[in-house]
Simulated scan of single mutants.
Amino acid sequence: MNIYFNKEDAIQISVGAFALGVPVAFSEEAWQSAITLPTLNLFLIVGLSLVFLGLYAYQGIFQHRVQTRLMAFFLRIFIAYGLTLVIVALILISLDKFPLFAETALALKRMLIVAMPASIGAIVVDGFDKED
């Protein structure tokens, strides 16, 4: 079994990120927590997101067989998280809650907070059609 990344995978990741990103992005709680959340906690959020992306990819997509496909494994996690960040940024822009140029730090914090659940949605939807 070889795991390739194609257009279908990108679409699945985008849809999954959108599905779980939208409800959180509409939450004023997420907007406000970005104001007070310490930087250390942001690193924890990103770290947890990447760990759980990795766990799901390892179990659900690669089915424990990553030894000979480490590059594909890490690339899939990187692409899933990167696409999630783009989707979340687009959602926040559409809600006028992404002040990238006026308040860059706040915009990035909001993006990372919303990306946590969105990234899980992204990787789960991506893993739906994986077969041996």
Results as ranks from 00 to 15, higher is better:
W31Y: 01
L44I: 09
I13K: 06
L40I: 15
G21K: 02
Q32K: 15
A30I: 12
I45S: 06
S33A: 12
T36H: 07
L37Q: 10
V22D: 00
I45V: 15
S27M: 11
E29D: 05
L48V: 11
L37V: 15
A34K: 08
S33M: 15
L48T: 06
P23S: 05
E29W: 11
W31S: 01
L48Y: 14
I35K: 11
G21W: 03
L40A: 09
E28Q: 14
S14C: 00
L44H: 07
F43K: 10
A25K: 00
L42D: 00
Q32D: 10
E29Q: 04
P23I: 03
V15R: 03
L44K: 08
A17S: 15
N41A: 12
T36S: 10
A17H: 05
L44C: 01
G16P: 02
L40Y: 13
F26W: 03
I35T: 11
V15Q: 01
V24F: 07
Q12V: 01
F43A: 13
V46W: 11
V46F: 13
V46A: 14
L42A: 01
I45N: 02
W31R: 07
G16S: 05
L40N: 10
E29K: 12
I45F: 09
T36I: 12
L37N: 10
N41P: 00
W31M: 07
S14N: 03
V15K: 02
Q12L: 13
G47K: 04
T39P: 01
A19H: 04
L42R: 05
A30P: 06
L48E: 10
L40W: 13
G21D: 08
E28Y: 15
A25D: 04
P38C: 09
L37K: 04
S33C: 02
I35C: 10
N41H: 12
P38F: 09
A30D: 05
L40C: 00
T36L: 03
A34G: 14
A34M: 06
V15I: 12
P23T: 07
L42V: 08
L20T: 07
I45Y: 05
I45T: 08
G47D: 07
Q12Y: 13
S27Y: 05
A34Q: 02
S49D: 00
F26N: 10
V46G: 11
A25Q: 04
T39Q: 07
A30M: 14
L37M: 06
T39H: 10
L48M: 14
S33F: 12
A19L: 15
S49C: 07
G16E: 02
E29S: 14
G21I: 06
A17N: 01
L48N: 14
A17M: 13
A19F: 13
L42N: 06
A34W: 01
F18Q: 00
Q32P: 04
A25R: 01
E28S: 11
E29R: 07
F43M: 09
G21H: 07
L20A: 13
E29C: 07
G21Y: 01
S14K: 01
L37D: 03
V22T: 13
V46Y: 08
A30Y: 09
